[in-house]
């Protein structure tokens, strides 16, 4: 036996407060949500402790009068829309952020600080106000429509608001700083000598971007993708304000179940599905980056 094994393991005791907080704020609430998702809906909202899998069935099926199950894609569409919108949001953020981050990283230090401050500036304003402002921009008689009409490009344009496009615009707008910052950090860390070495070895700009800059800033892009994709999945404000209550995402669907629809078990079941989606995504990302590292180490 190693001598250290005889000593009491103070690490466990020292970390006890952290463990307690984890249990109190993470494990127990998730446990409660799981319990609720398997409970029966109360007559006036709330729930009763009667075990049932009905909320999960309800995600996919309607129960007919005679108890027969009838496939209902209504919720599945919301889940699919959420996944697709989040993926598209992440892709657009990635495409827009890289040039922005690169531009900022190449500025002089004082300007760099200023630009980074500007990128984070929206976080100082209430999220509701920021998302709401898009209603003014996109809405009927909004800034965009008026401008286009003024120039004479369109005569009568339907509202841009209340639909997938408006939600997408809101999501990209809300989460793009979370993509710019980690990419900026990874470009900052990039040794300029490596870029010079690539040019020195007959690599033009495109080759240098593809073979040197992109591979070396991939960790920042992965971090940014996680930071944008995960909150997009759970977004509430953007679909509520810009989706117009009809086109929903999982976030406001859950809110609706706990609020207006008074179906707590269904809301809890959707929340669990959402959480599972996030966890699957993260595990997948983790495995991928582990495999990449493993490959790099093995070769």
């Amino acid at each position: 036996m190693k001598p250290s094994a005889r000593k009491p393991n103070w690490n466990v005791l020292g970390l006890l407060p952290a463990h307690l907080i984890m249990v109190l704020t993470l494990i127990i609430p998730i446990g409660i949500i799981i319990v609720v998702s398997f409970s029966t809906r109360g007559p006036y909202g709330g729930f009763e402790y009667v075990f049932t899998t009905a909320p999960y069935k309800q995600l996919l099926f309607n129960e007919g009068w005679t108890g027969e199950l009838e496939f209902n894609p209504q919720y599945l569409i919301v889940v699919a829309r959420t996944l697709v919108l989040s993926a598209v949001t992440t892709s657009i953020c990635l495409l827009l952020s890289f040039p922005v981050a690169y531009f900022i990283a190449l500025r002089r230090p004082t300007i760099k600080v200023l630009l980074i401050y500007l990128v984070t500036l929206p976080f100082w304003v209430s999220m509701i106000v920021r998302v709401y402002s898009w209603i003014i921009i996109l809405g009927k008689d909004g800034v965009i429509e008026k401008t286009l009409r003024g120039v004479g490009l369109v005569d009568n344009m339907g509202s841009l608001l209340f639909g997938n496009t408006a939600m997408l615009v809101g999501l990209v707008y809300s989460y793009i700083p979370l993509m710019i910052l980690p990419i900026f950090a990874s470009i900052e860390k990039l040794d300029p000598a490596l870029i010079e070495a690539s040019h020195d070895l007959y690599g033009n700009r495109l080759i240098t971007l593809r073979r040197v800059i992109l591979p070396l800033t991939r960790p920042g892009m992965i971090a940014g993708a996680i930071l944008v994709f995960v909150p997009s999945l759970g977004a509430v404000l953007e679909p509520t304000l810009l989706g117009g209550g009809k086109t929903m995402m999982m976030g406001n669907l859950i809110q609706l179940q706990f609020g207006g629809a008074r179906n707590w078990p269904l809301g809890a079941a959707i929340a669990i599905v959402l959480m599972a989606a996030v966890m699957i995504f993260l595990v997948f990302q983790g495995l991928r980056s582990m495999r990449i590292e493993g490959l790099e180490r093995a070769s």
Partner: peptide, 9 residues
């Protein structure tokens, strides 16, 4: 290069 600037990847 003084720092060698080998491509780490």
């Amino acid at each position: 290069f003084q720092s060698y600037a080998l491509f780490p990847h």
